[in-house]
Nucleic acid binder design. Structure first.
Lengths: 352, 352
DNA sequence: TTGAAAGCGCTAACAA
DNA sequence: TTGTTAGCGCTTTCAA
């Protein structure tokens, strides 16, 4: 790129220009001048010069010296999913409103990657870390502790650091009840017609499965292990599970619970391979909300997790002095089929 | 958080432990020891000590000294949309595979915010910047130039820096042709039945509108300004446009082109307010692919933009010495209704 | 109310 | 093949 040559102004340049010492300039420019009792006039002089020369602080230098950086991290499993991308959107806004610089990264649900990425962030001296949907929160915790980095778990709890998660049990109960009752509108439903697909052996999945089974037992009096099909979080694996079921039964279950919108993508892959009749009368529940998923050509009940509340609770926790490693539950919300909710994007002005 | 007291090891600690000088340690630990002709044995000694003491470089210090940081930025309009979130996913993988640390940020289509955020990134001495979907690419360009920051425009072109964008004109032609032909399966289509909603006065929208009108004229022999409804990029505004149309005509257009998946969310909001019959027989084209949008209860043709190609072309451009400010076109792809494509997530291993 | 000076952890000439 | 040294731009005591 064309190098404009003009090196960026430093506090030394302004020190010379203003006739003040570098430390005075520094104090004025980082906002600590009030408490360093610097004369208002001096401050204004320096500020004026800074503006005139378009001074901007070198944040690496500041960070090196003060061993803080102004950066806050959000570690995500993946970007490419509405639950996490809307969490990122919310996180960004919150962080900026607190004068911090948000850094959003994804670790692809790989525990090693999670730790490596966090180590990198630590090398940049980030000040705080939100660990969302980590496969191994306690592993990441170790890394953070060693570096003295304040952190909080979001979405998936750890045992060693404060956590903010959805009430997955209650959410699953609401969702299960909703889909069963909806299916019952078309005639009696028996336990063997109600399945769960997706998720794996993490806290969220376990709680959702527990809520699912509990509710099935409550409503249908019975509940069998055979109806639970954990497939991991990949769309491909989920599609294969539907395919297998279809091969065995000649149809999809009449009514089923999908563990996350990522798993729901697996259902799309299955549907793409089969004619419309295959799913003319299914009733689906999906844990996670997606604005298009809500309008599929069969009833889809969804759970909208309150990521805004989780993020802001996370910031609150990190602002307390010695937060205990307790778990905070946030209530999710049941979204009936064909519902378009507003999201973080709606805050933006977009008048053309 | 509990501070473990153990301060992080520095090259000086290792210098003492190994009996070598700090510069030797530095060279070993940053990989430049080969060309500094340091003895293999020395290198191994130091590396061993480093591992043992879990040394990790302080990247702020390194960055300050070398005035580079290892950070690459991606500036997005928003996170919460599948087109951009999958771009973020791809960008992350590419950056990491090149040993850089990706920083993804969103500026909410606010030109001031765009510049401010980029200035912040510059303060952290990022090495390169991808500017995706910027409202004011040339404004951002100014800021980058002043700081000598290498940058490239993605998705929306600027006039001053190299750009990589979709072939919006061709994409729009494919999409328009597809929806018209599909609508013709149900009987003759006249020009007044084919509309376009969404977008605004940016390069992508203009090209898409041009492709749309061109194709309408080609196929239907006629084309009227009245069929074009730019609404900006907000779901709310788009919904209002559909509402207005509906009030005036008692139905939606038989066949229409939606400028982006963000605008398609506006259609969902409209649909949420109206019974199913309102859209029993519409044919929709959406510029952007969304895996759930593809399975809505009416035919939705989509355009899948090749963000992988755009990102990797961007990296290629930035790796050349003095890239000219030319625009590179990347071909998008037409996706028929009810199609589930694989995405960046599929690269992940997710065996449970 | 301000200045002097030390140093955060690292890199890169230049010496040896 | 390795060591010495001078900073990168900033913050922060301590003195004045």
């Amino acid at each position: 790129m064309i190098d404009f040559g003009k090196k960026k102004a430093t506090i030394y340049d302004l020190s010379v220009l203003s006739g003040c010492s570098p430390s005075t300039v520094s104090a004025v420019l980082n906002g600590s001048w009030r408490k360093r009792r610097i004369k208002e006039a001096t401050a204004q002089l320096i500020q004026g010069l800074a503006d005139e020369h378009q001074y901007t602080a070198n944040l690496q230098a500041r960070g090196l010296r003060s061993s803080r950086s102004g950066l806050v991290g959000l570690l995500l499993p993946v970007h490419d999913n509405r639950y996490f991308s809307s969490m990122a959107q919310t996180f960004e806004a919150e962080a900026r409103s607190r004068g911090q610089c948000p850094i959003v990264v994804s670790a692809c649900r790989d525990p090693d990657e999670e730790r490596k990425i966090v180590e990198t962030l630590i090398s940049y001296s980030i000040d705080e870390l939100f660990i969302a949907g980590a496969t191994d929160p306690d592993g990441v915790h170790e890394v953070c502790i060693k570096a003295g980095l304040r952190h909080v778990n979001i979405d998936l709890p750890g045992t060693r650091a404060p956590s903010v998660i959805s009430d997955n049990f209650e959410g699953a109960r609401m969702l299960t009840r909703a889909i069963i009752e909806r299916a019952q509108q078309d005639g009696p439903v028996i336990s063997d017609e109600v399945y769960l697909f997706g998720g794996r052996d993490d806290h969220a999945s376990r709680e959702r499965i527990r809520g699912f089974r509990d509710t099935k037992r409550d409503i249908l009096g019975d509940d069998s292990e055979a109806c639970i099909h954990p497939t991991g979080y990949s769309p491909g694996m989920t599609a294969r599970a539907f395919e297998t079921f279809y091969e065995g039964h000649g149809k999809l279950p009449r009514c089923f619970f999908v563990n996350s919108s990522i798993n729901l993508e697996g259902l799309m892959r299955f549907l793409g391979q089969h004619p419309h009749e295959t799913f003319a009368d299914i009733v689906v529940g999906c844990y996670d909300y997606d604005p298009f998923g809500s309008f599929l050509p069969f009833p889809v009940y969804m759970i909208r997790q309150d990521s805004e509340a989780m993020i802001s609770e996370g910031f609150r926790i990190l602002s307390t002095s010695r937060p205990p490693a307790t778990t905070h539950l946030v209530q999710p919300m049941l979204v009936p089929p064909r519902t378009a909710l507003t999201g973080p994007l709606d805050a933006l002005k977009d008048v053309d």
